[in-house]
């Protein structure tokens, strides 16, 4: 592997971008593709597949043995609101392999006692997110019901292309929220990406059950997300 390939790969990993390294085993050559890069048409399908599954593949294409190794950023969940549902979600998320962070400016909610062992940021999302930006491998769940706290991170999540954006609230609450976000200049298609009412429809009633429904919806979004891979025209 060329040093430049290794460096490109490490830069992508450090900045939480997905990367695929394609190694031609007979020729001993390697190429790194960072998500968003142009890619040879005959490799588009396997690269897309490994980006979705997160599992590398060894394939023979045009009589060449090719190894597609995939490096995905660890997925994480950012919950807005240190509420009862977030407490349950904070315990479930690590089991399913997610990093978890909780943001809430209300210091009565965001206490270490309520969120033991979880990354807890007792501050406004406006103050936290610029230093800890959301990205494509982050799921954002807005759980406070309070537009003053929820609206900004929802806009930030849609802008960052988070693989999941969900918001707690009834259909009526969400209709008002959608209208508000559009007034703030968020495109209609972007607003339509928000999952609300939040969580898979399993009839969840308790905060813990709602947390399960939210986590399941997040897993579904991760495994079925759009992978940004423009097909290459020439070459």
């Amino acid at each position: 592997m060329e040093l430049s390939t290794l460096q490109a790969l490490n830069v992508a990993r450090a900045s939480r971008r997905a990367a695929v390294v394609v190694t031609d085993l007979s020729e001993g050559t390697s190429q790194a593709f960072i998500e968003g890069d142009r890619i040879r048409a005959e490799w588009a399908a396997p690269v897309s597949e490994v980006l979705h599954s997160g599992r590398p593949r060894l394939l023979t294409i045009e009589e060449r043995a090719l190894f597609f190794n995939v490096h995905l950023p660890p997925p994480r969940i950012v919950a807005i609101g240190a509420v009862h549902i977030s407490q349950a979600l904070s315990r479930l998320a690590p089991v399913a392999g997610f990093d978890m962070a909780v943001i809430d400016p209300r210091t009565a909610f965001a206490t270490a006692e309520r969120f033991h062992g979880v990354e807890l940021l007792a501050d406004w999302p406006e103050d936290v997110l610029p230093d800890r930006p959301l990205d494509r491998y982050t799921a954002l769940a807005a759980l406070t019901h309070d537009p003053k706290i929820d609206d900004y991170p929802l806009r930030a999540a849609l802008e960052a292309g988070c693989f999941y954006v969900g918001a707690l609230g009834s259909r009526k609450t969400h209709a008002a929220r959608s209208e508000r976000l559009q007034t703030q200049g968020v495109a209609t298609e972007a607003v339509a990406r928000i999952k609300a009412p939040i969580g898979l429809d399993i009839g969840a009633a308790s905060p813990a059950e709602i947390a399960v429904a939210v986590l399941a919806e997040i897993i579904g979004a991760l495994r079925r997300r759009d992978v940004d891979l423009p097909a290459e025209g020439g070459k």
Binding site: E2, L3, L6, L25
Partner: peptide, 8 residues
């Protein structure tokens, strides 16, 4: 296992 040298 594939073993390669880092060149550059």
């Amino acid at each position: 296992v594939y073993v390669e040298r880092i060149d550059g």
